[in-house]
């Protein structure tokens, strides 16, 4: 079961983070927060903070999956868990990129 968990954990984390940021975006837009710092609106600043946190979290997961202490004994599971680890990281960067690219509540 641990081996299955090693394979699933990174994309599972991405899915949770992705949904959470989508929800956060909805809540922020509904709350009507306005105001700016350095020409960037607070909504976007909060979202960017969350974006960076998510990416750091996924990087940490990749590091853990590569760490010999946590790695599986099976070389196959090691390979697949590394691959899905990278998938989690790339998916986080890619799918949440609109945080810095598009307008937020329009």
């Amino acid at each position: 079961m641990k081996d299955i968990l090693r394979i699933l954990i990174a994309p599972l984390t991405w899915l949770a983070a992705f949904s959470a940021i989508y929800g956060l975006h909805g809540v922020l837009c509904a709350s009507g927060i306005s105001g700016q710092t350095l020409g960037i609106s607070w909504v976007r600043l909060i979202l960017m903070g969350a974006y960076i946190l998510v990416i750091l979290g996924q990087i940490a997961l990749v590091a853990v999956l590569y760490h010999p202490k946590f790695a599986s004994r099976s070389s196959f599971v090691r390979f697949v868990s590394h691959a899905t680890g990278w998938v989690g990281l790339v998916a986080a960067i890619w799918s949440l990129a609109p945080v810095v690219m598009t307008s937020h509540c329009g």
Partner: peptide
């Protein structure tokens, strides 16, 4: 839905 919300799902 706001454009950023759509953009997340467009990217995914």
């Amino acid at each position: 839905i706001p454009h950023m919300g759509l953009a997340f799902f467009s990217a995914a």
